[in-house]
Structures are given as C-alpha cells and as structure tokens.
C-alpha cells in the first residue's frame, strides 16, 4: 500500500536537516525555523520557554499539517540577541533544567527506597 513508513515520523530522510530557517523579510529580528521530524513535544517546550526571556518579543509554533512530522517556530527578538541564539539559549537552559530534574529524581528515589526498606523491617 502507499502508507508512509512509520519511522518517517522520527527519522530524518536522506539529506534532510533537523532545523532549517529563514528570515522574515517583513518584520525585523524575526526568523521562522522549521523543525523536521519533531512535534508538540519540542514545539511547545521551546516556544513557551522563549516567552520567559525579556529579549524575546514573540514566539509561537504551528504544525502546518497533522500528517507531516514537522513544525514551524516563529521567533521575534528585540535585536540584542538573534532569534537563533535565543533558541540555542533556550535549549541549553532546558537541558540544564532536565539535568537538575534528573538529579532531583535520583535523590528522591534513593530516599524513598531507604524509607521503603525501613518500613518493611
């Protein structure tokens, strides 16, 4: 049949790039980034994280078509930081936050394990 392979949802095709981007010619300091083989997981995460930076004036994402595994992220900054650098900064901050979450979870899990064995004795 002509159904696309399901791994096309998350494996980049030949020559395809994870992220491509174009400047918006009508608005200054604005770029539209197309993320391939990504979905709301990354789209909403990045877009809402960008809202927290004072130099970001606008960020939003759209999934152009529900059958296509890609999303467009539009970012406007105040000019002190380029949209690309804003995204990179956002990614770095989230990775750091995830690191912290991981350590925090490990710590809590170990504590819970100790508590569980104590209550059993």
């Amino acid at each position: 049949m002509n159904a696309p392979d399901r791994f096309e949802l998350f494996i980049l095709g030949d020559g395809e790039k994870k992220v491509t981007w174009n400047l918006d010619t009508r608005v200054p300091n604005t770029a539209i980034f197309t993320f391939n083989k990504e979905d709301h997981t990354l789209g909403h995460l990045l877009s809402s994280r960008l809202h927290k930076y004072s130099y970001v004036q606008f960020s939003a994402y759209i999934i152009p078509h529900p059958l296509l595994p890609s999303f467009d992220l539009r970012v406007t900054t105040d000019g002190s930081v380029s949209p690309k650098d804003a995204i990179v900064q956002a990614c770095r901050d989230i990775v750091g936050e995830l690191d912290q979450l991981s350590r925090e979870f490990t710590k809590e899990w170990e504590l819970k394990k100790i508590a569980n064995t104590e209550s059993r004795n």
Binding site: K17, V19, F35, L42, K84, I87, C91, V95
Partner: peptide
C-alpha cells in the same frame, strides 16, 4: 535538545 543545539 542537544540535536537542535548542535544544528543551530
């Protein structure tokens, strides 16, 4: 996210 950082 690391993939995005790498790319950009």
């Amino acid at each position: 996210l690391a993939g995005v950082i790498q790319e950009l």
